[in-house]
């Protein structure tokens, strides 16, 4: 069954049409890549999906339920996790506090099932190899470490659907591999991931399907290989081919 589906989503701000008529659905356990040039509306779409922006028209369904009018906090409670392009971590808090606050924000019943939250927070840091920095401020981490921390935190707070906004931007090649591994691990646990990325090889290596966006519209969907060879993608990134 599809975990997330959108139908005819559009968003206008003033006279500008930022998103138009976006419909797609995502199956549980899929990793979907969202690509397209800068300004094509990818981050805006994430903001609409996670509730920070209200769509002008259209609906969003999570596991068949209409969530179009829920607040970001409510959607988080329903299992949507967001990893921000400009790092959604709390820089003046320690690493362990960063994870702990996410666990403490869970609904009461769910918190009870987790047992000792501090222990769990430490295990989360161990998972991404940051346990040595548990008591340093998160602001002192490198970009890649911040990504790992943010993804691990989202994972451990029991989210089902992950919206990752450029997880490899500003990340060293070595850590990029670690981020990719972590995303594949999410898939193994049955989670669903939407990932916005400019790094096409990265997308190719982890995604089941790719959605290509341009000027607020979905222009193409398909398997990574099909999309890579498509004429549309080449035109988008390199301009129209004069030979055809």
């Amino acid at each position: 069954m599809s975990i997330l589906s959108t139908s005819h989503l559009s968003l206008s701000i003033g006279e500008h049409r930022i998103l138009s008529d976006i419909s797609f659905s995502v199956e549980s356990g899929e990793i979907i890549g969202l690509i397209g040039p800068n300004g094509s509306g990818k981050t805006t779409l994430f903001n609409v999906l996670s509730g920070f922006l209200k769509p002008s028209t259209g609906t969003i369904h999570l596991r068949g339920e209409d969530i179009t009018h829920l607040s970001p906090a409510k959607r988080a409670g329903q299992g949507i996790g967001r990893v921000f392009q400009n790092f959604g971590i709390f820089r003046e808090m320690t690493l362990i506090e960063n994870v702990l606050v996410a666990l403490e924000a869970l609904p009461k019943e769910e918190r009870k099932n987790r047992g000792d939250l501090k222990k769990l927070a430490m295990e989360t840091l161990e998972m991404v190899g940051l346990e040595g920095n548990a008591h340093t401020k998160a602001g002192s981490l490198s970009g890649g470490q911040m990504r790992l921390l943010e993804i691990a935190r989202t994972l451990m707070s029991g989210k089902e659907l992950f919206l990752l906004d450029e997880p490899t931007a500003g990340v060293s090649p070595k850590l990029t591999q670690q981020v990719a591994d972590l995303i594949l691990q999410l898939k193994k646990q049955g989670k669903t991931v939407l990932v916005v990325e400019h790094d096409l090889p990265f997308i190719g290596s982890i995604c089941d399907r790719v959605i290509v966006m341009d000027v607020g519209k979905v222009v193409l969907t398909g398997k990574p290989n099909e999309v890579k060879q498509s004429k549309e993608l080449r035109e988008l990134y390199f301009g129209a081919d004069p030979t055809t």
Binding site: S50, P72, F84, F90, M93, V101, A102, A105
Partner: peptide, 25 residues
């Protein structure tokens, strides 16, 4: 305290706190 951590989270990154389910309102 847990309450204080939530407060600081809201101070430092309002939208990240929201997307973790912290009711910032």
């Amino acid at each position: 305290t847990s309450f204080g951590r939530k407060l600081r989270a809201v101070v430092q990154h309002d939208s990240a706190a929201l997307s973790l389910g912290i009711n910032s309102a």
